[in-house]
Write a protein that binds this DNA or RNA. Sequence first.
DNA 1: TGCCAGGTGTACT
DNA 2: AGTACACATGGC
Length: 310
Amino acid sequence: MINIIFCKNPVSLRDTFFSGQSFRWKKHSDNDSVFVSVMHDTPVVFMQRDSGILRIDSPRETIDGTGVTEWVKNYLSLDIDNSMLFDHDFRNRYPEIMQLVDDFEGLKLLRQDPFETAVTFMCAQGIGMPLIRRQVALLCERFGRPFIVETEGMRHVLYSFPSPDRLAGVPAEALRLCTNNNCRRAVNIRRMAGAVADGKLDFRRLAASGMQIELIREELCRFDGIGPKIADCIALFGLGRFDAFPIDTHVRQYLAGWFGLHRAEMTLTEKNYLRLQGEVRSILKPELAGYAGHLLFHCWRRKVKGLLTA
DNA sequence: TGCCAGGTGTACT
DNA sequence: AGTACACATGGC
């Protein structure tokens, strides 16, 4: 089953997946334009003909109950045009930043699965991207379902992301082998997964339109291992809340370095974190602050820090 | 060697 | 309300 999508605006799979969105896609051989994964128990191959044409190869006609084409459009947030992220004011005030950001016209922020997003960012506390990527890969290999993905004469063995009830049933001692040997993290993930499996944590309800971002954060932060930053990451990447603005160590750096926000250099207590978000809302469009922030995040890492490891 | 990496919870003043 | 520290390990 092959679908061709003509994109109105440029899309760069390489930049998008490099930026850590998602941790679940693998490069096909050394080809930068072909990526493979298993999404919602469906093997999927992305091929990029050019920045405006995507070919999607999937053995099934639907992913997650929706048509493949519709799913991809939503997943890649093709409804968001990167040129609308920064207003006239911002462009005038920070022309040198815009010059850097314009190179990432095709970088997309993915609308990912909320449970997968939650687990992934619970694995992302104070450690580097390679270690996060390894944890996610181990979780999938040990507790996901295997799939063979064949494309262009190559075979990949890929794994689905484990379901909530599967992870909830894994003893913490076994789970910690996948969570960087961190026992507390394993326990926290297990508990959160159990709540999702029991319906006590309902991501669909949190994703409903009209939910206040403060309420989403409050519900997520009830779980050990989820603080304001991770809650905002779940909202941004997993619930499609592009107004959510997670502040991590990289974001702090560019808020200080590019925008001169002194508060970004202070210790981030919860109060300080919220205040800093308030200051950001006066610089970036509030309804797309998180999306714009993701571009700045990627840009800062790539162009200023020179980081090449995703 | 020492510091930094997509933080959070707890135990102190 | 603010600060210090443990958690764990790899990369540079």
